[in-house]
Structures are given as C-alpha cells and as structure tokens.
Design a protein around this nucleic acid. Structure first.
Lengths: 339, 339
DNA sequence: TTGAAAGCGCTAACAA
DNA sequence: TTGTTAGCGCTTTCAA
C-alpha cells in the first residue's frame, strides 16, 4: 500500500529500493539508453512500486527551466459574443501538454499591460509567454523583445513591421473575403460592411477582405461600409442606417456581436434572415451557434493556432534556439441559417 | 542599464551590493520586521537596483510549496450556450493572485478523470487543486480525498454526503425559485419546466426550485415538466410539445441552451417573447446577453465563488490547516426582454 | 555502464 | 539584529 500523507518518494528512495545510485535513477528517467536493460527494468520497477515522479522544483532549479508557459488572461467580455479565448485556451493547454508544458495563467490590468509579465520573468517562474492581446498595439511584445524574453504572439505586430518575434495569426481578410464571396455566390450584389473604428488594425484587415471580394467582381463598395464600436446596439443602429441609405441585401460584420445587432434590426423590421436578407458574423461564437436558425460566421482555426504557437515556442526554447517563421492561418466559414 | 540576456540576479548578488549576508536579504524579503530600518532600506535599494526577484524554483524547493493552484480544463462546449468557465477562470486567477497564487491549467480526458491530477500531485507541481467538474459524480474528489490532497470543489458532493472536503456551490434551486417567482409576479400561472434528465443532480436541484415556487402559491406542476438533453434542439422540441399539451404561458429552463430552444419555438410560432409568453434561462451566458431583446437568466455569482474557493484554499494550505466550512451562494436574476 | 562530488538559489535553524 | 551552516531533490561533470 502506498503511504498517504507522507512526503513523496525521492530519487534516493528509488535508488535504495533498486540497489543503485541516485544518478542511475536519474538516468533511468532522463536518459534510459545509458542503462543496461536489466538495470533499467529494475529501476523502473522501483519507480512504479513507489509511485515516484521527479520533484518539479528541484528539477527546475537544476535545469533552470520551469516547463511552464505564461499567459495573461483578461476579464471575460460580457455583453458581447466574443468567445475566442475559451476555445483557444483549451487548445493551448492541450497542445502544450503534448510538448511537456503546462499553462500558467495570470491576471492583467488593462492600465498596465506589463504588470504580471515582469515578475514572472524575473523569478524565472515561466519559460516563455504566449501574448494574445496584440490588438492593444502590444507594448508587451516590445517590452518582452527588449528583455529578450522568449514569447510567441497570437496576432501580428501590426504597428511594428520590424518586430522580430515569432507570431501566429489568422488571416482576417481571407475570412471576410470568404464570407463576402459566399454571399455573392448566393446572388447578393449589394453587400454592406459593419466593422470597427479605423484605428483597429484587425478591423481594417477584415474590412479589406470584404472590399477585395466585391471589387474582384467589379462591384462597388461606396456607401456600403460603416465603422462603429463593437456592441450589439452599434450593429443594430448601423444596419438600420445602411438599410435606409444604401439598400444592401446582405451584411458582413467584423464580429458576431455586430452581426447580432443586424439580426436585431431584421427582427425590428420583420425581415427573415437567410431569405431576402443575409448576414455573416466573425468568430463562430456560441451565440452564432445557438441563435434561432443560426448565424453564418467566419471561424478561426484556433486549434491550429495553438499548435503553431507551441511549435514556435519549442523552437525558441530549444538548444540552440530556432527562430520560428511566423504563420498566417486561413479561417473557414461556418454556414448557418442567416445566409 | 540593466543587463539583458544574462542570468537574473540572485540573493548573493543583492547581498554583495548591499554589503550584508544572503540571509539578511532573505529576511528583507520575507520578514522585513526583523531588520533594522536602515539595513532594510539599504537592502531594498539593492533589490531595486538589480531588479531582483526570488527564484521561484529555489524557493519552492526549500519551502516545499509551489504557490500554484491546479485546475483541469475541459474542452469548450460548442453548440451550447454554456459559458460558466470563462468568467469563473478569470475570477479565480484574479482572486488567487491576491492570495499569492497562480493558476496552472491542465488538460483532462473525459475517459480518465484522474489523469493529470496524479502526476501534478506526485511531482509536487501544485499545492492544491480546484475541482470543477463535480457533476461527473466526481471520482476525482474521492480520489483526491484518499490521497489527502488539498483541494476545494466548485460543486457539492451530491452522491457523497459523507465527503469531508471543502466545497463552494451555487444554490440552483434558489435561482429557479427566483426565476419562477419573477414570472408569477408578472402574472403567469402556468409555468413550465424544461430541464435535464433525472440522473443530473444539478438538474433535479434546479427543478426543485421551480416546483417549490409554484407549490408555494398553491399552483400545480403536473404535466408542466419536461426532462431532456442539454441541446437547443431538445429545448425547441420540448417547448413545442408542452405548448400543445399543457398550455403554459412561461418557461423556466435549466440552461440558456434550453431557453434558446424555447425562443426558437416562439419564432416558429410567431410568438413574441416577453409579451404573451415568457422564458427564463440559467447561467447568464453571452447568448442571453446579446440575443435580440435579451434572455432573462439566472446568474451565478462566480466572482464570489472564486473568492470563497480561494479562502478555503488558504485555510487548507495554512499551518496548521483550517477545515474550511462549505459555502452555498445565492444566484441573482438578470432581467431582460424575454420575460 | 555505473557512481561520487558538486552545486543550482533559497530559507530554517541556530549561533554570534 | 545579523551571519553561518546545512540541506531541500535534482542533474551535470567527471571519475571509476
């Protein structure tokens, strides 16, 4: 029977039981090839019998690595449909595990984007970071780069073309192009855009996909675009104005939140989404999935993003480090009743 | 200028700069009261100058504590409105930080609920766990209790009344009672229930609140209840059947997912939610918040849950440990257009 | 192929 | 009030 509340077994305990030195046990765990097969078997039996697992703190101290990936998590965005993080976090945790890493979460204040990073770095609590909030003009990325801290960003360094850190991102323009082309194929000619304010690089990127798709068919975009805040109310107002002033038959939106605003306007006016009028959102949130008749939405391949990020991380943490090439992934379109 | 890519400063570096011993620096960090104020100031200056932060691994090794709380995270539940985790995780991270802990996430396979826990425990990678998936009949809780591992559960040990671990939970029955009473106050008399299958203890708890509220006013519940799977389609079907067979004027649901199904049926039949017919969901998901006209929903006080959990955790990890009393928190009702 | 010695950076216990 | 000693459990280096 295994002891319960005592301290866990150590290398020395295993060594004694197996009748070998501590070093041999260490080798059995880390470099099994070095041992003669019968010694290895004996040591492994002892490990099994005692339920031994190397003490993380001791190993971390010795190897100067924590096998922990730090990620800052912001508050859940309520009142919106934004739901990227939930899916991404799980994918990241899963993928990290396969690479031998755990994910350490820390809280961030929106005032000081550096807070949290510094302490973890100085205390060598994490080996690297995943930086997700790059839409903020990422001062963290700049700061981390200066500190030579290993990190991978989810999101392009929009305002820093000379940034040299690895990043993984999703091609937003490709997504909205996909959405717009889908609507064009379904016969729509006047397709409106509801996106974010001009200072959002991500918003402008997504907008570019919409206009690109229309121009590719020789269709105009003039008067069909609107830039608002990312709220349901804004999407509702913007779509009402566009309907009155530009007579579109379909909408492509920068977010599911805005698309929900459009659905709201449809309801206000007795319009059935998916018949005379269509709308496509962005992010394939749970909202898009469960709203009556469903909301067609651009889906980011977050599982793939996580895989690429962990790959890049493994490169950075290898000896010698590999400079990972940055990756741009292509989203897909989740088709539902709204289009 | 601070050096960039070199190894971080150690206690010894600070000691040398301040002209004191290493132990004095350690005391300056951990027991500042022990130092004469001028020595303390000198050491603090040195710490500041070098940007010193104690090495976590070394400290962990010495103190036999990691200051890490482990939490298993399951896959995001797509196709449902379930969104408890996002909000809870952030609250937990935030609250833990204030108590000096970080949150370590690990992945779980649904086949083996123990996987992940064992390794972290044996390698002393975390000090304690937060167990959230207690609806599974929580084999983890039983297992952790056997191992004398410190943990706090979010969720009552329904099937183990003799369980002795601390837990924090939200009173589901109080929530549905609140929802039902709200509908009664608005003049509804025939209020239907759409919940989960009978083997869900949480589902039965929530159902109890609904029937309790009706019985308190001397109203019948017969024929007004339905137990289905937690999908939008099930909620849609169940509400259609109930409308035909029991003529309710309002629905209380065990989840926002089911409530979305009810809204779907309302649309199918040209019913406007919030006027002749009402519906209330459970969890105050983003879906409830952004769906046109809004879905009234029971909101779990997840921030408070996190606070109570961290309190209990601090008790467990104190010297000597305190047996935390378990807590049952009361949800609120987020009022929106659907009722 | 295995073992012995040293030390990662820190703090508990004790001594000065 | 400050300093000295020892050792947490592991892996790296080197010797046997």
């Amino acid at each position: 029977m295994t002891p319960l509340s005592t301290t866990p077994p150590t290398l020395a305990d295993v060594a004694e039981l197996a009748g070998v030195s501590r070093q041999t046990v260490s080798n059995a765990v880390n470099n099994p090839d070095l041992l003669r097969s019968d010694t290895l078997a004996r040591v492994q039996d002892a490990i099994e019998a005692l339920g031994y697992s190397p003490n993380r703190a001791a190993r971390n101290l010795r190897t100067r690595a924590s096998h922990l990936i730090g990620m800052r998590i912001g508050p859940a965005q309520e009142g919106t449909a934004n739901a990227t993080m939930d899916r991404f976090v799980h994918s990241l945790v899963e993928t990290s595990r396969e690479a031998g890493y755990h994910v350490l979460l820390f809280a961030g204040s929106s005032e000081d984007p550096i807070a949290g990073y510094e302490d973890l770095l100085r205390s060598t609590a994490v080996d690297a970071f995943v930086v997700t909030d790059t839409y903020l003009g990422n001062p963290q990325a700049v700061w981390l780069e200066q500190r030579r801290a290993p990190f991978v960003a989810f999101g392009r360094p929009w305002d820093h073309p000379d940034a040299r850190h690895p990043w993984v991102d999703v091609d937003g323009a490709a997504g909205t192009d996909l959405a717009t082309t889908h609507l064009l194929d379904r016969g729509h000619q006047r397709i409106a855009w509801i996106g974010w304010r001009k200072d959002s690089r991500i918003g402008e990127d997504r907008r570019a996909g919409w206009s690109r798709a229309l121009h590719a068919r020789g269709l105009p975009t003039t008067g069909l675009a609107s830039r608002v805040e990312d709220t349901v109310a804004s999407g509702r107002e913007a779509s009402a104005v566009l309907l009155d002033e530009a007579q579109p038959t379909a909408f492509v939106c920068a977010s599911d939140t805005l698309a929900m605003g459009v659905l709201h306007t449809f309801r206000d006016r007795g319009i059935t989404a998916g018949r005379e009028m269509s709308v496509v959102g962005f992010d394939d949130s749970q909202v898009a999935q469960v709203v009556p008749f469903g909301l067609t939405s651009v889906r980011q391949p977050l599982e793939d993003v996580a895989v690429e990020i962990v790959k890049a991380l493994e490169g950075l943490l290898a000896h010698p480090p590999t400079i990972a090439t940055s990756t741009l992934l292509v989203p897909t379109l989740a088709l539902r009743g709204s289009s």
